[in-house]
């Protein structure tokens, strides 16, 4: 083989850097060099290597070698000075982000809290992207800059910033996933679905004078216990609307307590369609949050979920 490839040897370069101890990675020289380099930021590992490491020297073409001085041929300089930070990709990207921020920091911003909600990449996702062990604190600084950039008024958002921000966003923005707005069915009926334990209830609520039918039966027939009746209609009772609406409900599954609890949520959801402003009152009454508790599963070696078998001597 007449073509011999040499690569930049870390030891050699380390030696060469050690000769200039004054030049730290945060020195002005580093920043300047980064500013001058209009290196396209790349997050993939192979692309990073080509971007940071010097190009390979091809000895097969003698002309090239002849033109290059001996020093330059022997002393290989990495493409990015961040090479020596051990996290070159991250450092470069962080610096470019900082640059962009400085460039556009005078642009008008929206009021705090009015910026579009963005779900940024998690630390783990970011680490995978750059392929480097980025510390949480460092990524936090990235996020701070991103948050500031996100506050730039949307109508004035430069294309450059938008592209930069987009590369840090998650693929799916959970904040864009808005719940479907519920409305009545045009006949004055509002349907709400509620669940509790293993029961589920569908509730149709219409304006009325307080008639209640659950599974075609009266409230007392469905729930012999007063407590269950109260909890089934708790959303209406807590908002003093017991005699303002008629309830027609279908409830299935589980036992009486679960069915009553399912009705609570169903009635509350249906009531919110009629009167959305009642949401804080209903939340205070505990009618908004679904109780996620279910029967705990049985485990092997146990009599029930937790109960251990009785101790037996041999």
């Amino acid at each position: 083989m007449n073509s011999v490839r040499i690569r930049a040897c870390f030891n050699n370069i380390a030696v060469s850097w050690s000769r200039h101890p004054g030049r730290g990675i945060n020195s002005a020289w580093t920043h300047r060099s980064i500013l001058h380099q209009t290196r396209c930021q790349s997050f993939s590992q192979s692309a990073a290597r080509t971007g940071i490491a010097a190009p390979e020297i091809d000895f097969s073409t003698n002309e090239q070698i002849r033109d290059v001085s001996l020093l330059e041929r022997v002393r290989v300089i990495p493409a990015s000075p961040s090479y020596f930070t051990a996290k070159p990709d991250f450092t470069d990207s962080f610096l470019s982000l900082q640059n962009i921020y400085r460039k556009y920091q005078t642009l008008p911003t929206v009021q705090p809290g009015h910026a579009p909600r963005v779900s940024w990449k998690s630390l783990a996702q970011y680490r995978l992207l750059v392929g480097e062990p980025v510390k949480a604190a460092k990524y936090h600084k990235v996020l701070q800059i991103l948050g500031r950039l996100n506050q730039i008024h949307p109508s004035l958002m430069p294309e450059e910033v938008r592209r930069e921000i987009d590369s840090y966003k998650r693929l799916l923005n959970a904040h864009e996933n808005m719940p479907r707005e519920r409305t009545g069915d045009g006949f004055g009926r509002a349907i709400g679905v509620g669940r509790r334990k293993s029961s589920s209830a569908r509730v149709w609520l219409v304006e009325g004078d307080g008639q209640v039918l659950v599974n075609g039966k009266s409230l007392t027939e469905t729930f012999p216990r007063l407590h269950d009746r109260e909890s089934a209609l708790w959303a209406l009772k807590a908002t003093q609307r017991l005699d303002k609406y008629n309830v027609w409900a279908l409830v299935s599954g589980g036992g009486l307590t679960g069915q009553a609890g399912a009705l609570t949520l169903g009635v509350a959801k249906a009531l919110l369609i009629h009167e959305p402003a009642l949401k804080p009152a209903l939340r205070r009454a505990g009618c908004i949050t679904r109780d996620p508790r279910r029967v705990e599963r049985k485990k092997p070696g146990k009599v029930k979920a937790r109960k251990m078998p009785a101790w037996v001597k041999r």
Binding site: G210, S218, T220, L226, R229, L233, K237, Q240, L242, D243
Partner: peptide, 15 residues
Amino acid sequence: DSLVAEKWILAGGGI
């Protein structure tokens, strides 16, 4: 009226 309505409704409509 509201108390009467509440008790009456919770009593299954007048049981």
